[in-house]
Structures are given as structure tokens and as C-alpha cells.
Amino acid sequence: MQRVNMIMAESPGLITICLLGYLLSAECTVFLDHENANKILNRPKRYNSGKLEEFVQGNLERECMEEKCSFEEAREVFENTERTTEFWKQYVDGDQCESNPCLNGGSCKDDINSYECWCPFGFEGKNCELDVTCNIKNGRCEQFCKNSADNKVVCSCTEGYRLAENQKSCEPAVPFPCGRVSVSQTSKLTRAETVFPDVDYVNSTEAETILDNITQSTQSFNDFTRVVGGEDAKPGQFPWQVVLNGKVDAFCGGSIVNEKWIVTAAHCVETGVKITVVAGEHNIEETEHTEQKRNVIRIIPHHNYNAAINKYNHDIALLELDEPLVLNSYVTPICIADKEYTNIFLKFGSGYVSGWGRVFHKGRSALVLQYLRVPLVDRATCLRSTKFTIYNNMFCAGFHEGGRDSCQGDSGGPHVTEVEGTSFLTGIISWGEECAMKGKYGIYTKVSRYVNWIKEKTKLT
């Protein structure tokens, strides 16, 4: 034993070699072989497995989906700052455009905790909710729209109204504003409101030439003092309507412009014939205590009207009353817009006519005020429907199939267009061939041609 100890002390290297040989010859039971080890760690190889990531292109799944990435790591994937920024906006807080917040056709661009709407022409605001041009839906104005110097929408209202708090709607500024039905039992019968379409306001006024200088022999019209197929109006439903009495009662109609003036057809009036105007009328054979009678003290036909040349060209006249009318729910003026808007309103496509005229061709006159909704007829169809001249200051309205029309005794009465609950004068009943005849239409004086003249002559002093 002493000898062994001496050998170990003198030859430590020998001992180490012996131990190493023993270990190498022993069977290893701690580690699995290569094949079995792979069965336990069965993990798919990654895209760049075996390579240094710093030297390969980034992978979106590896960089940002398996674990949260930084902007720089995302930049490695896209290799483009702009594309990385677009991805980053949604990656950080989701897609803010998912709810489609942009209105009126706006395009949404996502941002971090926010979004941006790219608005089409005519709109602005956070969600493109603000109209900035009158060309689109009248700028959301209830009545009139004008573009300011910086191309912003400025709404306005006709006389007797003021802008509401929203700067879009119009509200009454006087007790009985024009064009409004205020009798409670008839307010439910107000005709369907007309909503502004998209309009090209630059070209809204037709490029028409008034044929002022045409000389033409007097034409022989049949029954051209021209509501057939209409309905009984309720008291106060058309408070701007008046009836004219002269040699015979209810020979023509008219509309209240203001307390002192009536507008009617020029062919209705004769110099030297006494005319009485009755406002607030409903049943011409009954006294309903809503009527107001006034005498006409002055007749002003349009300066281009000449019955000797043509009885229905420039067929418009103004009547001055001896005493002002007292405005109330049964006696209310009709609204008159400017030339541009009167023309736009007419193009809405349908209007209402009213009167006490004959209820059928050569038949009896109506006792109760009649009204009828009539569609506008395109000019080409209008011209083809008659052998008589249709001037540019006239328009056609009615039904091709016949059966409904204005008729004798309705002449001078109103053709009105309702705009968001307020009625505007767009025409004056003038003439036609018979009444409600198939293929024939009622012919009306186009008020847009005469609004400046009306307003100039009827100013209240």
C-alpha cells in the first residue's frame, strides 16, 4: 500500500490518463441519441435557420407576430419608411378606419389613436360632414345658397324668414311668412316636400332668348283662358290664391305678392273693366268669414305684352289694390325667389296649380277651390304637342294621358313649387288646347323671366 501511494504521488498524470480511459469505455446513459432527441424537440425550422439574422431580410411573422416588435424591426421587413409607417399605425392600436367614419364618399386613412378623412370636392370637416359648395344638395341650405369668396357655403332665406341657429334652416321672422300653410287642420295635408338634388348652379339658368321682337298675326285659340281631375282644397291650404270678379264672377285667378299687390295673367284683364279681388276665398257660393274683398285701382301688364300681336306672350300683369290686405292664416303671400332659384325650383319637376275653373272641358265651374299636382314636361315634348308657338318664356306641365289639367277660369292662378315646406311661385296658368285632352298640356308663363320686374313694381313704400 505504501508503494502504491508513492507511485500516485510521483505520477499524477498517469492516474488522470487511467481515469479518462475508464470513462470513455463506459456506456453513456444520461444523453439520448440524435434521433430520439429530435422526437422530443420537434420544432419547425425557421426561415433563416442556421444563418445569422443580421444578414437576412426581415420576416413579418418572425419579427412582429411571434413577439412584439419595434418600429426598427418592422422597418427591416418593409425596407421602406412609408410602408412601415402605414403598417405601424394599425399594428400599434388597430384600424381606426374600420367603422368607416368618413361621410359623403370620403376616404379614410388610419393613424395612431386617430384617423384622417380625405374629402371629395365640396366637403370638409373631420368626417367630411361639412358642405362647402352650393353645387351639392344646395349646400344643405333649406332655401338659398351662395358661395363666399373663400368658396364656403353661405345660406340665406327669402323675405319674412331668418336663418336658424344651425345656419342652414329657415324659420319665420314674421307672423305670416310667405308660402307657408298655417291653418292647423290643413298642415297635415301639406304636399310632399321637395329635397334639393345635386345641381350645376353655374349652368342652372337656361341660355334662352326671349323672342321679344317676333311679330306674329293673332292666333285663334280655343278655350285658351284655361282644375280638371283635381281635388277639393281645404280652407287655408292655398292662402296665396285669390279669385278675380268682373263682368262675371271667378273669371280668373291670381296670387298675393304682398298686402297691396296681386300677380295674374295679362290676358285676364281689360282696361276700363272694374275688377274686384277676393282673398281668403274657399267656396265661392258661401260666406265663410275668411274672405277679404278689395278693388283694383291700377293694372300693370308687362311692358312687352301686346294682345294685338299675341294674347299669351309675356302673359303676366300686376294688380294694385285700393287697401292693403290683412295677412292671416287664410290670406298669405306666395314666396318669389330670384331668377336663378325660381328656375331651379321649376326644374324640380312638379308643381301645384289651383283655381275655381271648370271641372271638365266646357263644363261647370268649381264651387270649392280645386288643386292638382302636375309634372313638368320637357321642352321637346311640349313643342311636338301643339302647332302653336311655345315661346321661351312659357313652359308645359300636365299629363300625356289627359284627364287632369287646369281649365277655363283658372287662368292667372299660381303654379307653385314647394321647397322644404315653403311654396314659391314658378308659373302662372296661361293657356292650353281644350282641357285635359290626351297628348295636350297646360301652358304656363315662366315666372323666372319676370321676377325682377315683379319685385321692382310691387315694392311697398
Rank of each mutant, 00 (worst) to 15 (best):
A337V: 03
Q167V: 05
V263I: 11
G398M: 04
E340D: 15
G58C: 05
K457D: 02
N127S: 07
V278E: 03
N127K: 07
T194I: 11
E340A: 13
I344W: 08
N258P: 00
S423Q: 07
G230S: 11
F399E: 14
I284T: 11
G254C: 01
D249G: 12
V416N: 03
S156Y: 11
R162F: 09
I15W: 08
P301H: 08
Q96T: 06
L19S: 02
Y161R: 04
F55E: 15
V154N: 08
F196H: 15
R83L: 10
V416M: 09
I256C: 00
G412H: 04
T264G: 02
L325D: 00
M65D: 14
K146F: 10
W118E: 02
T287N: 13
S182A: 11
P197A: 14
E53F: 06
T194P: 09
I429A: 12
R294G: 02
K455S: 05
V181E: 07
N104D: 00
F395Y: 03
T276L: 05
I309D: 07
N5D: 07
L425W: 00
G160E: 03
Q219H: 13
E281M: 12
N313D: 07
T215E: 05
S406K: 11
G230L: 12
F395G: 01
I336K: 00
N283S: 08
E323G: 04
E320S: 02
D232N: 14
D150N: 11
V30P: 14
K247D: 13
L372V: 12
Q57A: 11
D150R: 09
V195E: 14
T84C: 04
R3G: 10
L130A: 08
N310D: 09
L41Q: 15
P235Q: 09
N42Y: 08
K438P: 14
D338S: 10
K45Q: 13
E53A: 10
E208Q: 07
M65N: 07
Q219N: 08
V374L: 04
V153Y: 08
F251W: 08
R358A: 09
F251R: 09
H400R: 14
I17E: 02
I454S: 01
N393F: 04
P44W: 08
Y201M: 12
F221I: 14
E61C: 03
Y161F: 10
E285N: 06
C128G: 00
I112Q: 14
L425V: 01
F360R: 14
R83Y: 10
A337L: 00
D95E: 06
A265Y: 01
V153Q: 08
V199Y: 13
I428E: 00
S448L: 02
E270A: 12
V331M: 01
A337E: 01
N151V: 08
L32R: 09
E66V: 05
N328E: 02
R226C: 06
G351H: 04
S70Q: 14
P333W: 01
Y352T: 07
Y305F: 07
G398W: 03
A192C: 05
V56T: 15
F78T: 03
P235L: 08
G21D: 03
P120Q: 07
Y115D: 00
L460C: 08
G412W: 09
N147S: 10
V243P: 02
Q216Y: 11
F399N: 11
N213C: 04
G427V: 00
F348Q: 08
Y371H: 12
I7M: 12
T458P: 01
K247F: 08
F395T: 02
G427Q: 00
E259P: 09
W431D: 08
N306Y: 05
I112C: 03
H289E: 11
K387D: 12
P235Y: 07
R180H: 11
A164W: 03
F55L: 15
R404K: 02
H361N: 15
N452P: 12
N113Y: 07
N203D: 06
S114Y: 07
E193Y: 12
V77Q: 15
D315F: 00
A192H: 08
K459Q: 15
S411L: 13
L372Y: 10
C435A: 03
T133V: 14
D410V: 13
K39L: 09
Y352R: 06
L103W: 04
R364T: 13
G50H: 10
G432V: 07
G13E: 04
Y341V: 05
R294K: 03
K39P: 13
I275S: 03
K188V: 09
C134T: 03
T290H: 15
M6D: 08
V269I: 13
Y312S: 04
W88F: 14
L327W: 12
W356L: 09
G280S: 02
G402C: 06
G403M: 14
K152V: 11
K440W: 03
R83S: 15
H302Y: 14
T445D: 01
F123S: 03
V199T: 12
T381G: 04
E288L: 06
H400N: 10
Q219T: 11
T271Y: 06
D111H: 08
K455N: 07
G280D: 01
K339C: 10
E35Y: 09
Q219Y: 06
T458N: 01
V181S: 08
L327M: 12
Q241V: 10
H361M: 11
L23Q: 02
L130I: 14
N135M: 09
S156H: 09
Y450K: 02
A164H: 11
N343P: 02
E76A: 04
D315S: 03
Q408R: 10
L244F: 06
S204E: 13
A307S: 09
I112V: 15
C141T: 00
T85A: 09
S184Y: 11
K51M: 07
V243M: 05
F238R: 04
R62Q: 15
D223A: 12
K457W: 07
Q143K: 01
N258F: 02
I336V: 10
V153A: 09
D200A: 12
V416C: 05
G254F: 01
F123L: 04
R43E: 07
Q237C: 04
S448N: 04
